[in-house]
Design a binder for these strands. Structure first.
Lengths: 356, 356
DNA sequence: TGCAGAAATGAAAACATTTGCAAGACTGTT
DNA sequence: AACAGTCTTGCAAATGTTTTCATTTCTGCA
C-alpha cells in the first residue's frame, strides 16, 4: 500500500510537505486542516484529507509541541498503580482527559518523594500541558520546581481548605474521624489501629491523627501494643494483624488505614476463627472495588475514587484550555460512611445485653 | 530566585541558548553536556552545569524528539487499569523502562478494539520510541497501522509460539488446560465455568477453549446451564455466581476465567453458606495480589505479572537501543498451578471414601 | 621550538510544524 | 463595471534542539 512512497530502497516517512504535495496545496493548508478545519474550503479539506489517508500521514506532536503549542499530554504522578488504591482514579482520570484529546504520561514513585521530584522533572522535560500529583506532601525541591513553571498543577485525592496547591479530593482528617466515631458509637473502647509508615504519606498521617483525636475526645486510651504498622499490602497487613490478634489480649475493634489493610485484617480474623463482627469489628477507609462484596462485607468510609478522577480530569482540562495556571480551585469530594457487616456493637455491650 | 530572568514583566523561559550565554559557551556545548558529557572538558562541563542549575533550565524533549532523536517515551496500551489484573504489569513495566530513562505514555481502551486503534494512533503522533500492547487480538486497522511503522512493537501478557507479533507472556491455552486438569484430577465431573464475553479478548477465549477441550478429553460433559458469563468485576461475578449456585442442581466445581471472578465466586458461596472446598471447589487464573491471603486461599494458575512486566520492559528497552524494530522475540513465561484451599476432592469421592 | 595528532569547541544546517501577514479569489452591492 | 468586504491560501519566520564539519586549542614528542 505504501509502496508508492519507497524510493531507492528508502522508506519515506510522509511529513506535512509530502502530504501537501500530494494534495497540491501548501503545508500551511495541511496544518490548518489538522488544527483549524473550519478555516479551509470544504473542497480543499477533502483533497487534503484524502492525501492524508492515502499517505498514511501521522502528524508529529513533537514538532507541534515545539512550536509552543500544546503537547496534548498531561502528566500524572502516583505513588503506585499496583494496588487497587489508585488504579481506579488513574483510570477515570485517564478516561476524562483522553476524551478531550490528551494522552497521559504516567509516573509512579513508590512513596519516595525524592524519586517523585526526579519524575516530575522528566515530565516537565516532555512539556506536559498540566500536571497532577497525588496528595499535598511533596519535597521542597518539588514545590520549588513547579512554582517556577507556569503550568496548571493539581493535587488529587486530598482536600484541605487551606491547601498550598489546587486540589480535588477528600478530607482525610474527616475520613479518620468518621471511622473512629463509628467505632465509638458502637461502644468500642479497646481499639487497635493499623497504619503504614506515615512519614511520606499525608493521607495516612491525617487519617491517623484525626482518628486518634476522636478516640481521645471520647476518653478512650490507645495502648501502644495495639498500634501497629503495616504497608498497603494485603499479605503484610494480614501477617501483622495475625500477630496482633492471636493471644487473649486483643482489641475489640480495628481501625485500618485503608481497605487493603482492612482486608488483610479480616482474613487474619478468619484464619484465627475470630467471629466478625461479634468478637471483632473491622473498619477500613476507601471502599475499594470488592470491599462491598467481601464476606463479611467491609464497613468503610467511602472515597469516591472515580468521582475524584473525573473531577480532577475536568478541572485540569479546563485549566489547560483557559491557559490559566493560577486558577486556585479547591474542590472537595464528599465522604460517606458505609455501614456493612464487618462492624458491630462492642462485645461488652452484647454481653451486657444478654445478661439483662 | 528566577528574578534575574524576568525582563519587562515578561518571564523568560530559559532555553539552551540562554544557558549557553550564561555559561559563556555555545549552545552546542550545552547540548553536549546534556547528552554526551564525556565529550566536553570537565571544567567547561562544571560551568555549564552551574548555569543549568542557576537558570532552572529544563531541556525540551519535544525539540529533541523532533530532531529524529528518541522521544524517550514508550507507549503502553492496556484494556483497563482499574482492575488488579493489569495494574501489576503496568507497574513493573513502568519501573523497568523508567529506570532506563523512558517515560510511559499510557492508554486504556476498555476492551474496545476500535478505540484501541485510535489510541495507538495518538501514541504514534507522539512518536513513542516503542509500543507495547496487551494480547494478540487487534483490529485489522491496528495491524496495518503498526506494520507501516518502523518501531519496536511488543505484545505482552500472551504467548503463542506462532504469534504474529513479538510477545512476552504466558500461554493462555496452557493456563486453561492446567486449571481444568486440576479439577479433573480431583475427581470433579459436574463443572461450571464463569467467563467474560470472549469476542474481544483472546486471553479469555484461549483459556476457555483449552479448558473445554481438557474436560471433553476427560469425558466430562459441560451442560449449558453451568456455563455463565460475567465481566471482570467482583460484584458482577458474585451476582452471576449467586444465581448459578442457589438451588440444588449446582456444579461441584467452578473454573473461573481469572481470580477476580473467582473471588466473586467464593464470596457468593460464602453468602450461600456453601462450604469451600467441601461442597464446592473454585479455581481461578492469575494469582492476583490478595488471592493467596483470602480465606479460603484461592487455588489458581499463577501468571507472574511482575515477571512479565519486567521482561517486557527489558525487551522493549533493548529493542529501542538496538534500533532494531524487526527483532522477533517471543518470550514465554512459565505458568504454575498453585494449590491452595479453595479446591478439594469432589464431594462424590469424599462420600464414597466415607462409606467404605 | 616545531609539529602531528588528539581534544574541545563553535557555526550552521536540519528537524516538522504553526501562524502572522499579505496577497489573491470570490461575493454582493451600487 | 468598480468596489468593499470576506474567504482562502501561500510565504516565510519562528520554535529549541542535535549533529556534522571545521576550526581552534592543547598535548606530547622529536
Amino acid at each position: 500500500m505504501y509502496i508508492d512512497f519507497i524510493r531507492e530502497n528508502q522508506v519515506i516517512k510522509p511529513d506535512i510537505v509530502f502530504v501537501a504535495n500530494l494534495a497540491g496545496v501548501s503545508p500551511a493548508t495541511v496544518s490548518r486542516v489538522m488544527n483549524h478545519p473550519e478555516l479551509v474550503h470544504p473542497e480543499t479539506r477533502r483533497k487534503v484529507e484524502l492525501a492524508v489517508e492515502k499517505s498514511g500521514y501521522i502528524r508529529n506532536r513533537a514538532a507541534q509541541a515545539m512550536h509552543g503549542r500544546r503537547s496534548a499530554t498531561i502528566g500524572l504522578v502516583v505513588p503506585t498503580v499496583a494496588n487497587t488504591i489508585f488504579a481506579e482514579v488513574v483510570q477515570s482520570f485517564n478516561d476524562t482527559v483522553s476524551k478531550e484529546g490528551f494522552t497521559l504520561l504516567l509516573a509512579s514513585h513508590g512513596y519516595d518523594l525524592d524519586r517523585e521530584y526526579r519524575l516530575i522533572r522528566k515530565l516537565l522535560e516532555h512539556r506536559v500541558d498540566a500536571l497532577a500529583v497525588v496528595g499535598l506532601d511533596h519535597s521542597p525541591g518539588t514545590f520549588r520546581l513547579i512554582s517556577g513553571q507556569r503550568m496548571p498543577l493539581l493535587a488529587i485525592w486530598n482536600y484541605l481548605p487551606d491547601a498550598p496547591l489546587p486540589c480535588v479530593g477528600v478530607d482525610n482528617c474527616e475520613a479518620g474521624r468518621l471511622a473512629a466515631e463509628h467505632l465509638v458509637a458502637l461502644g468500642h473502647r479497646r481499639i487497635g489501629m493499623v497504619f503504614p509508615e506515615t512519614s511520606n504519606n499525608d493521607r495516612a498521617r491525617d487519617r491517623k491523627k484525626a482518628a486518634t483525636a476522636a478516640f481521645i475526645a471520647a476518653g478512650i486510651e490507645l495502648p501502644q501494643r495495639w498500634q501497629i504498622t503495616a504497608p498497603y499490602s494485603i499479605a503484610q497487613a494480614k501477617a501483622a494483624c495475625l500477630e496482633l490478634l492471636e493471644g487473649e489480649d486483643r482489641p475489640s475493634a480495628l481501625l485500618c488505614a485503608n481497605d487493603v489493610i482492612a482486608q488483610g485484617a479480616i482474613y487474619a480474623a478468619a484464619r484465627l476463627g475470630i467471629a466478625i463482627p461479634d468478637s471483632l469489628s473491622v473498619i477500613g477507609i476507601g471502599d475499594f472495588a470488592g470491599s462491598a462484596q467481601m464476606e463479611p462485607a467491609l464497613t468503610t468510609v467511602r472515597i469516591p475514587a472515580q468521582q475524584i478522577g473525573t473531577a480532577a480530569g475536568e478541572e485540569i482540562v479546563t485549566a489547560v484550555s483557559r491557559c490559566d495556571p493560577d486558577r486556585m480551585i479547591r474542590r472537595r469530594v464528599e465522604l460517606e460512611l458505609i455501614m456493612r457487616t464487618s462492624t458491630g456493637l462492642a462485645p461488652e455491650l452484647i454481653a451486657r445485653g444478654q445478661s439483662t
